[in-house]
Write a protein that binds this DNA or RNA. Structure first.
Lengths: 195, 195, 195, 195
DNA sequence: TATGAATGAGTATTCATTCAT
DNA sequence: TATGAATGAATACTCATTCAT
């Protein structure tokens, strides 16, 4: 019953995503994850040897899924301006719809997690940063972007998206997703200043 | 001796700032704070009735101190462009030099803290956001800034600063503070795109 | 093995009865109960979610056991006088032989226990009072007892038994159980005064 | 200012009586007593070297006051029956009006108090028991009471009064003081059985 | 005499992890 | 493979007592 087993692992990751994002790493309880996944607590440990490992698996799988989705959604034969707008729009949409994972990414890289596991998570993060960085370098080469340090620009992009999307998720009634996207796009491409 | 007593409270807040910023709220231990402040654990509770209250006092005092410093450092009779550059530069400098507090601000608004206390902290945060928002509105009125939603722009400003400064603090050798400040200023005022 | 588990719960209740009766609710320590039951402290909490709940379970189970024993021991087809004597004698015997529980019942209904739990305990108490009250009403209907307020009479019965049995338990050498029983029976049925 | 000082000690005892009776020995906090007495906590220790000593002083003073009041209120030249009724009535009245002390007496002789202090309290108790015992012996000598063991009868008297008065104090609306007094008198003098 | 800030030993409770079944 | 009862180390918080002023 390999399928059955994989399904169970998937159910656990899904439950973990929900609980970790709602409570953060330290406040999330293995009991609650087990209950939400409808498995016994022992089963968690049967599949993931510790809370940290389960956390790492949750974040890693989640971010990889998001990155795959981004790559699928990018059409690179558009004019660069539209290409860039498309990336931001995709990023924001996926950030919102995968909020269980992105919230974790945003808030819970703090200490108290096994170093070994922390390294694993930081690597996925780097992969994510590198992806943005690549896009920015592309823009620079094409002469569309200013020659700013790409790794700092990449972080700026992520920082803006992270902050505005977190704000949106806290109170989705307050602003529309278009406003968020437009604001992000305008600031990043043209800046706050006019003329 | 009232002075002596106030000094002790100050020593506690200072120790709390260090420990909370290093470990985060849930991983910070009252024992460690007491030890670092060189007082008995009971003294912590004699002065702050709970861990949450101590946390709130630490963050509130810290952010208020930063806001005062910002206001003292702003020269508002400069041309707006330079005025804005000055604000960003001051913000970044204070963010870095008060890292014990700003790290907390950035990472630990998550759940698990008394609601009552959480509200107090969120209020200081709002005060901070409002300050940035006011500056942006001023720029819009002067015709210097585009008419973007000010509260979203304010968050974008904070998001960029937060992300880049956190990055700087994680590895201060990697980039200089000028690079950080320039990147923040350029992106925010002119955007990534050229022409 | 369910049996094993039930045995462990029983061992805990037994230990709790001994410690609570010796120390009272607030002075009883969970550590001591765990040690006496030969389980880890966590096991106490795995089975009873708090000290209050464990206390409630101990008292409730104990009083229910006593009430069952009383009902089994009453022969109601005797002449009423002997029937009443039998009840008192049974009550006293069970009070003494279940002293871990009755001592708690007598001394520890005071404050400091969760309200929810306190209510539970008071309900078992009411059940016990109601039982005595029923017997007294029966005696009144049969014309054997004076028409005194039954709930007050019931409390008087319990009060006398409680006081004399506590006295007996404090120093069992001093008086015999027969003397106690005779005194209780004589006072309650005929009063102190003669003729 | 000896007077002033004595007044302060009196204020402390009074506050202690209220707090001990409401919370019991272990749940009563020195802080609360100090606050209620409107003195600093240090002052408690300046006058009574420990919590146990303060407790002992509270109980001893209280019971002595009650015993004095009883002796003042007894008219011994009445017919014995009325004399006995008078004693019970006085006892009940004083039990109710000195509930802070009598509640302590009833519920808090349990463990956890310094042995030395416990002995002191038990001695006052014995004095109180002895007083009742003397009255009962008098009744026996006068041929009014049956020849039951006087120390057991005395405890029975105290047990009934204690239980019914505690019940009255818990819910003073439920029964009148006359009903209580009549029930106690009838049961004790004539018993529950009629003819 | 009186104060109240400071102390630290003592306690209920939590929760990741283990392991017999 | 899966379970869930059992564990015990870890931790926030309490409060009688002390003592410098």
């Amino acid at each position: 019953m390999a399928k059955n087993h994989e399904q169970k692992k998937e159910k656990i990751i899904e439950a973990a995503g929900i609980v970790f994002s709602k409570k953060g790493f330290h406040q999330a309880k293995m009991d609650e994850i087990a209950e939400m996944a409808k498995v016994a607590k022992g089963t968690l440990y049967y599949n993931y040897s510790s809370k940290s490992k389960l956390f790492a698996a949750t974040v890693t799988q989640g971010l990889n899924r998001i990155m795959e989705a981004i790559e699928e959604n990018i059409e690179s034969d558009l004019p660069f301006q539209e290409h860039f707008h498309g990336i931001l729009s995709t990023l924001i949409r996926l950030y919102i719809s995968n909020s269980e994972v992105t919230r974790i990414y945003a808030n819970e890289m703090s200490s108290g997690i096994d170093d070994e596991v922390l390294v694993e998570i930081k690597n996925v993060r780097k992969k994510f940063n590198a992806f943005i960085e690549t896009q920015l370098k592309l823009g620079q080469e094409k002469g569309y972007f200013r020659p700013l340090p790409p790794h700092l620009s990449a972080m700026a992009v992520i920082g803006i998206i992270d902050t505005l999307c977190s704000h949106y998720l806290e109170d989705p009634e307050h602003d529309t997703l278009e406003e968020i996207t437009d604001t992000v796009y305008t600031i990043l491409s043209k800046g706050l200043a006019q003329i």
